[in-house]
Design a protein around this nucleic acid. Structure first.
Lengths: 141, 141
DNA sequence: CTTGCATCTGTAGTTGCTACAGGTGCCACA
DNA sequence: TGTGGCACCTGTAGCAACTACAGATGCAAG
């Protein structure tokens, strides 16, 4: 009985390193119920398993893909209930894809406007600033 | 002396309508010092002038272009001090443009990945969900 | 003078974390 | 066996940029 801690368990720091998710963020995910509460050492330190690692990686990747916490919760909910409805997942993916495309389109417009503004004063310092003028021009949309 | 309120002044609701900025947001901008405190009616209601309208429109447009509150504060600071350094404004615009382009590039990548994921299950409901599988694949980056 | 919408203040909630403060656990090394 | 010191603990507050109340007044028209 020399070992009190499970040799196959990771402390939170290891999980953090492996997944690239901040320690505070891991605890935050636990608080909001996205990650299950892990076992603790007698002293109270969290002990994670490989399953936790897989789950956290899933969350991390989904976040990287821009899924919201709510969306991830819904995806994991299906996984947890062993009721992965591929149709539903597909629908969520497409919906998210549409949102991403909208965002790209909006940013492109923005890019164009910014380019135009920048181009106006590209010739150096002039008394009146064209960028400021543009922003102050007519009261609204 | 029949009129107590200035006929050339707008109440906050009118300013909101003209600029498309939420009433609560206008008060918020005042609280954080982005908008100056307007005069009040004897009863305490805010009375805005055309200058306020111009300034708020400026803020609105800048926000629409994705400038942060801090950036707008800096732009307005130059305006307020009658020291509009066109070079500095130009620099800020270009910097912001670069950030926008970075964001577009990131979203494009994301779009590609999401498309690929969605395409995998486009053929209908299959026992294992390819999207979930992709997200669960190998533990990390 | 009443009706009722417009405004008022102040606080709390949103999303997704991050950053403390002030305390313990754990483990290797002597 | 003791101790140094990093890892970890809880809990709270802060970030951006608002939004959403609650509960109290202002103001103008009929």
């Amino acid at each position: 009985m020399s070992r009190v801690t499970n040799p196959r368990a990771y402390p939170i720091g290891a999980l953090s390193r492996e997944t690239g998710v901040n320690i505070e963020t891991i605890r935050y995910y636990e608080k909001i119920g996205l990650m299950p509460r892990p076992d603790r050492t007698p002293g109270g330190n969290r002990q994670y398993t490989h399953d936790h690692l897989k789950r956290l990686s899933f969350i991390r990747k989904s976040r990287d893909l821009g899924f919201s916490i709510a969306e991830i919760r819904s995806l994991l909910g299906m996984v947890d209930q062993h009721e992965v409805s591929c149709g539903e997942v597909h629908r969520m993916t497409l919906q998210h894809l549409a949102a991403v495309r909208d965002k790209i389109a909006a940013l492109r417009k923005l890019e164009t406007v910014l380019e135009a503004m920048a181009a106006k004063c590209a010739r150096g310092d002039v008394p009146a600033c064209p960028v400021i003028d543009t922003l102050f021009d007519q009261a609204g949309a």
